[in-house]
Each structure stands twice: as structure tokens, then as C-alpha cells.
Nucleic acid binder design. Structure first.
Lengths: 248, 248
DNA sequence: GCAAGTGAGTGGTATACTCCAATTGCACGG
DNA sequence: CCGTGCAATTGGAGTATACCACTCACTTGC
């Protein structure tokens, strides 16, 4: 339970090493500079090389370093984006250097109905908390968000209301930690009422994002339908070839 | 060089194990069924548990299995999509069960110019092969693709012309293997000429995708600008929380 | 009958060691 | 002076072993 925030002497040796390495990557070292060798790190930290490798491998997976056999491990160029990471709107905007906010927040408890029920694997009669809000960045409307959370998982959420980050509330109040999400992005145009809410011309292009979020136990926590204005939003990410299959 | 396609007794023990496990996942086992325990696999394959773990861990990263301490390793539900994987149009369409094709293919060798040059880190005067085509799925236009490849990396490409998959050609003829790509997705609407090419109403919604692709040595291989019709295309993928940071 | 407790079995982390494969720089020879 | 080749270095793969943390089914006791 004593999990301190991010960097420090937390948890396993591997995790400590990871923190140290992240510090190097984001601090002292510039892109394409060489990290200490595995053997050096192992010795100076008093751990096995395997432990070092696990930490470095993970950073490799995440694209923060790249490794070349015979040469060494090097810092990757800063990633242009990290939209493949699972984030809340709040986190996402902060990462872009904008101040997140909400307008017209509305919370109600309603039966799931056919569609929402299907998305959350509930009976249509089961209750869900429906949170509707216009999300803003630096005060400007960015997206319209409709979120549904099974009432069973977050009792009293509708009554309590939402102030800041829903994800934060789910974690702290209900101990629901989202670990995974399936997301589907569509391109669309804004019909007049939505355009008005977002303050853009009618029929402007927009993203429609559908998302089902799960916790570590594969329990469905949230279904969200969001509409983002396309003039201020894009999805930027890095993708990798997934080993196997040379079938072009 | 003798890399056989996918499954089989290729390469390292870890890779062989991976193939075996993939076979199980895609064959015998249904979602949420339990895989053999790490210790069992280690014994029956005559390898260490650590080797087994590496194989299973990787499958875990890729979302094909999920692991629960104390319980076991289980097959994940089939993924709704794999758009976070790096694929060519050809592969992507095949994965969706459609037959890929091309119309109006045009190849020319031109100076990069300011924008393309910047994207590929070339001088504006350096030559690039420009491939322009309308990509089809089951004969229907799906997207308009403009691809640029540095002429130095693929000499004679313009003369040779493109028949099927550009990626296949790059791999087989020029030994350029794309490993990584930065991708940026925007929502837009189709202006009349593009709409006509794709056979949809003017001002229909569409995705605009910009992509810079790199090989293992971080050499820029390709810059591509594609426009997809939104009525037949969506981006579906799974995202994960990236450990660290509880800062919601 | 039902809840609490416990233990076997599972994945998670770590040590200590070995050999292989790719890279790179330096010395040596043409 | 250039390049060829060798040797040191670095990451990659693997073995053998130990102990920890969590889960879950079964037993036990009320």
C-alpha cells in the first residue's frame, strides 16, 4: 500500500533500477547516447545481469531505448506522441501542456439499455451511472464525452457527482484500476447541435472514439463515447513490427 | 537466411516454444482456457522455466494471453483488431478478410522538395521515388496513397514499377525491412476530386494518415500520406496502462 | 450448512554462471 | 595509406536453483 509516486526506492530491485534508468534517460543523457553496459549496471547496483536485462528490455519495449547487440543500449529519440498509452482525458491534456476542464457536467443513474448493456456485458435493465460532459483544454471545448459505469461497481457515484478526473475517483474511491482498453476510432462530421457545443462550424470533421475499459481482472469498468474536434486533435503514435510473419 | 515462414522448429528455443504456444492459442484452446503451467512447459520441452517465462511474457505483452499470479496463464479473447501493429495496406486488408488491390498506380522519380524532404530527413534536391495509387479492397476503392521512398535506398524502383505490395518489394529487392513507424491520424473531409476518386459523396468524412517508417537502424525508409474513406474504415486497437505513474 | 483457515500449486523476482553472436576499434601487413 | 583481420566488448540466449506472493479448493470447526 505504501506505493510512493514514481521515482525512488520503491518495490522490487527491477523497479528501482527502472526508475534510475528513466532518470538517466530523461535527465543526463541525450538521444542516441549510450547507457552503461548491462554488466556495469549489474555491478554498481549489486544485482544480477538478468535483473538489469529485464529492466532494459522493458524500456526497449516501450521504445525509450534501443539495443544493438555488440554495440550497447542507447536512448531513443523522444517520442513524438504517446497516444497508444492508456490515459484519461485529464492526463492526455496535461501531457500536451494544456489545462483540462469540464463544462455542463451531468451525472444520472439509468438502465443500461440494449447498446450500453452490450458494451459493458450487462443486462439492459442493470443500472449504469451516465456521465455527460464537455471536456475543455485551456478553457476551449475539445470533446464531448459520454461515459457509462456499471452502478454495481461504483455505488453512489451519481449522487456524489464528479469534480475532476473520473479515473482518479474510480481509483481512489472505488479501487477500480483500469489496466486495458479497447478503442475504436472513427472519422465523422459534426451535426449542428454537437458543432454548437464544441463551438465550431456545422459539419466540421471530427473523431468519434468508442472505448471499453477493463481492470486487471478483465472486468468491464467503463464504456465511453467521445467526439473530438479534428482541428485541434490528432492521434500520433509509434507502431512496431511484431516479430514473426514475413508475409508482406 | 533459411528462415522458414512462421511456425516450426526455427531459431532459438524460445522462438520454438512461442510457435508451439501460438499453435495452442489459435488451435486447441478457447479464450479464457488455461495454458499449461510454466513448470510443466519447462519440463516437457526440456528448457528452463526462465525460457518459458520469456516466451509467455512476450505473448502477454502482445495481449494474446493474460497471466494471474497464483492462478495461471490464460488465453485472451480474440483481439478485435490489431491496428497498433505495423502492417502494410496489403497485410491490413488480408487480415480483415478482404482482397487488396491497386488502381491508377503511378511511379515517378522527383526531387523531394521542402515538405517530403523534411519528413525523410533529405535535402529538398535529393531524389525520391513517388508512388501514387488508389488502394482497393475487394475491388472497391478504400484509400488514396502517396508514398515517397529515397531514391538512394531503392535505385531503379521508378523504372521497375510496382506490382503488388511495396513493402514486399522493399524487403525482397532492396533488403529494406521496416521495423518502426511514426503515424499521425487526422480527421478530415473529402474535397470533390478526392471524393470522386474514392467514389463517395463530396465532403464525406475521412481519415488522413501521415506515416514515417524506419528500419532497425533508424534509417528513414518511407513517407506516406494516405486518405481513407471513413465509412469503410476505423482504427480499432487495444491500449494498456504503462505501469508507473498513478497521477490520474 | 456455512464461514474461517490452511496448504498445495501457480506465477513473480532474484542469484550465479555459461556460452553465443554481433559490433567495433586497433594493430598489423600489404 | 588503406584495408584486412583479429580480439575485446557488448548484448542475446540459456541452465540450475531458490524463495516470495498470490489464488483457490479443500478441510475443518462452529
Amino acid at each position: 500500500m505504501a506505493e510512493t509516486a514514481g521515482n525512488g526506492r520503491t518495490g522490487t530491485k527491477g523497479a528501482q533500477l527502472r526508475s534510475y534508468l528513466l532518470g538517466l534517460i530523461e535527465g543526463e543523457l541525450k538521444p542516441h547516447e549510450k547507457l552503461p553496459t548491462e554488466r556495469d549496471l549489474a555491478e554498481t547496483f549489486g544485482v544480477t545481469r538478468l535483473t538489469v536485462r529485464r529492466a532494459l528490455d522493458q524500456l526497449g519495449y516501450e521504445g525509450r531505448v534501443y539495443r544493438t547487440q555488440g554495440a550497447g543500449t542507447f536512448v531513443s529519440e523522444p517520442r513524438i506522441a504517446k497516444s497508444v498509452e492508456l490515459t484519461s482525458f485529464t492526463q492526455d491534456m496535461r501531457a500536451r501542456g494544456l489545462v483540462p476542464g469540464s463544462l455542463d457536467t451531468m451525472v444520472e443513474e439509468i438502465p443500461a439499455g440494449a447498446e450500453i448493456g452490450a458494451r459493458l456485458a450487462l443486462s439492459p435493465r442493470d443500472l449504469v451511472a451516465h456521465i455527460s460532459r464537455v471536456r475543455t483544454a485551456d478553457g476551449e471545448p475539445m470533446c464531448i464525452e459520454n461515459t457509462y459505469v456499471p452502478a454495481k461497481l461504483a455505488p453512489g457515484l451519481a449522487a456524489r457527482g464528479i469534480t475532476g478526473s473520473l479515473y482518479q475517483m474510480l481509483t481512489e474511491t472505488y479501487h477500480l484500476k483500469i489496466e486495458k482498453a479497447e478503442q475504436s476510432i472513427h472519422a465523422t462530421v459534426l451535426d449542428p447541435p454537437l458543432a454548437k457545443l464544441l463551438g465550431v462550424p456545422e459539419f466540421s470533421p471530427a473523431f468519434k472514439v468508442l472505448r471499453v475499459a477493463y481492470d486487471a481482472k478483465n472486468q468491464r469498468i467503463e464504456y465511453a463515447e467521445s467526439v473530438y474536434r479534428a482541428d485541434r486533435y490528432s492521434y500520433d503514435f509509434v507502431i512496431f513490427r511484431t516479430s514473426r510473419d514475413n508475409t508482406n
